[in-house]
């Protein structure tokens, strides 16, 4: 399933990287970021102290007042609730506004996924989709499949329009087993 996910993600222009530790993840991110980075509060990423690792690696991390910094940020980092293997999709509960800001405005989006949380396809995701709706009264849920794209001029596929130009999915084992946790 992991192999299928990585392959599908590659086909839609996303990049997958397998990392063994949070430090490796932070190093990977640091190697790509050229400006500030939005880091919304998320349980899984807080548990592994990603912010500290990123700062140690020299990244300027925005940990609050995201709206103020959103327009000028170069990257956003989020966890992933779970992924879909057949289409290379990552599913993010984006009800918290900072998650939306971090995944819409910056040019780079880094998504940290526990490779244990991959479902076969969108049909298998329906119980979780319903679960989100049962757990919270209001929801903003995102299925993200590759970077933003357009073919609106002469049908020529161009990657990166209004949303991120790059989507990096970092596969970090042991990050989270909870499908409802970002």
């Amino acid at each position: 399933m992991l192999k299928q996910f990585i392959e599908a993600l590659g086909k839609v222009g996303g990049q997958a990287a397998e990392v063994a530790t949070v430090r490796e993840a932070a190093a990977y991110i640091a190697g790509h970021v050229t400006g500030t980075l939005l880091l919304p509060s998320q349980p899984s990423l807080e548990r592994v102290a990603l912010a500290v690792e990123l700062e140690t690696a020299g990244v300027k991390v925005i940990k609050e007042s995201w709206r103020e910094h959103a327009a000028s940020a170069n990257a956003g980092v989020t966890g992933v609730n779970f992924a879909l293997a057949d289409t290379g999709t990552v599913v993010l509960d984006s009800t918290v506004e900072a998650v939306r800001l971090a995944t819409t405005l910056p040019e780079l989006h880094f998504a940290l996924l526990d490779p244990g949380k991959i479902l076969v396809d969108s049909l298998a995701a329906i119980p979780y989709l319903r679960g989100f709706h049962e757990r919270a009264p209001r929801n903003y849920l995102a299925y993200i499949t590759g970077p933003s794209r357009t073919a609106d001029i002469e049908r020529v596929l161009t990657i990166g329009v209004h949303g991120p130009r790059q989507l990096h999915v970092l596969l970090l084992p042991g990050l989270s087993t909870d499908y409802y946790e970002l």
Binding site: V12, T95, H133, R138, N139, Y140, A142, G163
Partner: peptide, 17 residues
């Protein structure tokens, strides 16, 4: 496309600022 880049499910008045 197997799926578009984004499928966005919005229910209700979500947080804004």
């Amino acid at each position: 496309q197997l799926l578009t880049s984004y499928v966005t499910w919005i229910r209700g008045a979500v947080p804004c600022g």
